[in-house]
Amino acid sequence: MDKVSVKTGDTPSGPVGTVTSSEVVVQAVVPGSDATLLRAGMTARVETPDGEEVEGRLVALGDDVPKNDAGDDKDAPVAPDGGSGGDASAPVPIRISVPSGKLTENADGSAKVTIEVGASDGDVLTVPIAALHTSADGQATVRVRRGTTVVRVSVEAGLSAEGRVEVTPSGDTLKAGDPVVVGR
């Protein structure tokens, strides 16, 4: 408490005090499928519409975000699985702490939050996500056109972003520029 407006024994009829924190927090929600990749302590980049960019830390997600800070619907319950209620795409609340003195001009404004969950080492081979097929046993394959025939190539799937997925083929059976079959 920075300032107390009542004395011991008084009957409060309004605010009883003021609490000031130097912590700036950014509250957001992410799809449940993305929340599974996040952990407290991860670095988050926060960018305001006017271009100000600061680095913060993910301090809470799912059940660890106080219920009254979970977003616009302050009374919405958060499911025990982090807010998804079993639906992997359901929103999960997150909370990011930004160093004091940062973003104070943009309080109650919008911001873009980026949390890097992984990165590829150098150049990688990618295919459209729609070209990747996964069998019941978890084996990933890509169909490649070789002349007039189509062959299946076993691959190991890696990171995905912007509609593409990193693949590592078994041996030299898939190379950059090979035509892959999408969506059949």
Rank of each mutant, 00 (worst) to 15 (best):
R39I: 02
A40V: 10
T43P: 02
T43D: 10
A44L: 01
A44Y: 06
R45P: 00
E47T: 15
T48L: 05
T48D: 08
D50N: 10
G51E: 11
E53I: 09
V54C: 01
E55G: 04
E55T: 11
E55L: 05
L58G: 01
V59A: 11
A60S: 06
L61N: 05
G62N: 13
V65R: 04
P66A: 14
K67D: 12
N68V: 12
N68A: 08
D69C: 00
A70V: 13
G71Q: 10
D72T: 13
D72V: 09
D73K: 04
D73Y: 13
D73N: 08
D75I: 06
P77M: 15
V78F: 07
P80Y: 09
D81I: 01
D81Y: 01
G82H: 07
G83F: 03
G83I: 06
G86M: 05
G86I: 11
D87G: 02
A88K: 15
A88V: 14
S89H: 12
S89G: 06
S89W: 13
A90M: 07
V92S: 04
I94Y: 08
I94M: 05
S97G: 03
P99Q: 12
S100T: 10
S100D: 13
S100Y: 07
S100F: 10
G101Y: 14
K102E: 15
N106A: 06
A107P: 02
G109D: 13
S110V: 03
S110G: 14
A111E: 10
K112G: 00
V113R: 02
V113D: 02
V113K: 03
T114R: 13
I115F: 00
I115H: 00
E116T: 15
G118H: 07
G118I: 11
A119N: 13
A119K: 15
S120W: 02
S120D: 09
S120L: 04
G122T: 12
D123R: 12
L125W: 05
T126Y: 10
T126K: 11
T126M: 07
I129E: 15
I129L: 15
A130V: 10
A130G: 08
A131E: 07
S135P: 00
A136L: 13
A136K: 15
D137Y: 05
Q139R: 15
Q139G: 01
Q139W: 06
A140E: 07
T141G: 01
V142C: 08
R143M: 04
R143P: 00
R143A: 03
V144L: 06
V144E: 03
V144P: 00
R146D: 01
G147V: 06
G147H: 08
T148W: 09
T148R: 11
T149K: 11
V150S: 03
V150F: 01
V150L: 02
R152M: 03
V153K: 12
V153Q: 06
V153T: 12
S154W: 14
V155N: 03
E156V: 12
A157I: 08
G158E: 06
L159K: 11
L159S: 09
S160N: 04
A161G: 05
E162I: 00
G163C: 01
V165W: 02
V165I: 10
V167P: 00
P169D: 06
D172W: 08
T173A: 07
T173G: 05
T173D: 11
L174P: 00
L174G: 00
K175T: 08
A176G: 02
G177V: 07
D178C: 03
P179C: 06
